[in-house]
């Protein structure tokens, strides 16, 4: 046998060894905040597994992707808290063992049993939450004005506001400003919301996604982002402490994201370990301060693993007050969702 053959055999053996070392892979369909090494690496190292992350935007896109995938392609799904029922209805999510999840340690308002479970069976668990409210540059606006939603989008700030480009929270804010609770939104309440959206739209310089809204605020293009919150300004706060957010007197909208195991997963035990890690105090602290966007951890014990500065940016000490004053953002059925989207697009294009 020649030296070349020995070398080739050695390379092949090394490749086989490497393959067997990283044989186990976990495939997760997630929001961008999970794509952070600081969050994922500790789990990978502890369990000797490779976590493959695929980011998506919009529940519809995720459900379509899952429907087009082969059974077993995906193990874990991160989903908008109000949309868990959509995945449960289609049988995509597997039951979760409630007793193995830190539900007792969670902020009461975000446990959301009615969203995450059906007929007493849990299918998902809340992992992160935050607010769609008013972000602003405190050096450029009258801070008192930010406590009244109607003033925020009044002519006083015309051309100085940007609207977050997601119809559900923004329409929720519009509803709250008119005294309509998000849980009671229906087709009739759209008639009340329509003119508010029209006023908001006429005062806005732009309707922007996350990065564009952050850029607009940071560069002085606008001074206020309607629908913003800690997730928008936290990453700016270190260099520009004047970028901040508030919950107006009328209240604001609360967003949540949940995590569950896909029913076709062939690695349910490992998937559960992943969920237990993400919802553990350590995992929660890392998820809360993830590179893509910050948000409050659902597990209140995450506080022990966060710095004073991180807690201050997230307004940890004010959470009880904020949770009382905010409402979960609208969870419309399909007909209402379509009507809301049509109204949004109609106002947006005016």
């Amino acid at each position: 046998m020649t030296k070349l053959r020995y070398s080739l055999l050695a390379i092949a053996a090394m490749q086989l060894a490497t393959t067997s070392v990283v044989a186990q892979e976990l495939n997760a369909l997630v929001w961008c905040d999970h794509a952070d090494d600081a969050l994922i690496k500790p789990f990978e190292e502890k369990h000797d597994v490779k976590v493959n992350l695929r980011e998506y935007e919009g529940t519809g896109a995720a459900l379509a992707l899952l429907e087009q995938s082969r059974p077993g392609d995906w193990d874990v799904l991160v989903i908008d808290g109000i949309d868990v029922f959509r995945a449960v209805e289609t049988g995509m999510l597997a039951p979760l063992p409630k007793n193995e999840l830190p539900i007792e340690d969670m902020f009461t308002e975000v446990i959301m049993e009615e969203n995450n479970s059906k007929d007493g069976t849990w299918y998902a668990v809340t992992e992160k939450f935050g607010y769609n409210t008013i972000s602003y540059n405190s050096a450029k606006v009258d801070v008192k004005d930010m406590q009244d939603l109607a003033t925020v989008w009044s002519d006083k700030y015309a051309g100085r506001i940007s609207i977050y480009d997601y119809y559900l929270p923004v329409m929720g804010l519009a509803a709250i400003s008119e005294g309509v609770t998000t849980a009671n939104m229906d087709a009739a309440s759209l008639k009340t919301i329509g003119p508010v959206l029209g006023q908001m739209r006429s005062s806005a310089a732009s309707v922007a996604g996350v990065v564009a809204a952050q850029t607009a605020l940071a560069t002085g293009e606008v001074d206020i982002v309607v629908g913003g919150g800690e997730w928008l300004t936290a990453v700016l706060a270190e260099e520009q402490p004047e970028m901040t957010w508030t919950i107006p007197d009328q209240g604001a909208v609360r967003w949540t994201q949940s995590i569950g195991i896909l029913s076709d997963s062939k690695q349910k035990e490992l998937s559960l370990e992943f969920i237990k890690y993400i919802t553990s105090p350590e995992g929660q602290a890392r998820l809360a301060t993830s590179a893509c966007f910050w948000g409050m951890p659902a597990n209140s014990k995450a506080s022990d693993f966060m710095t004073d500065s991180q807690r201050a940016i997230l307004r940890w000490d004010e959470q009880n007050k904020f949770l009382r004053r905010t409402q979960l953002y609208p969870a419309p059925n399909m007909d209402l969702d379509n009507a809301m989207q049509d109204l949004w697009l109609d106002k947006l294009s005016q």
Binding site: G60, S206, G209, S349
Partner: peptide, 26 residues
């Protein structure tokens, strides 16, 4: 148009994306 237009006017591709994002109305 999405980045520079500030969604102040919607173009056809933007409206198509909205149909796919949440509604998944292919």
């Amino acid at each position: 148009p999405h980045i520079l237009g500030g969604n102040n006017e919607l173009t056809m591709p933007q409206v198509v994306m909205v149909q796919l994002g949440r509604r998944a109305d292919f």
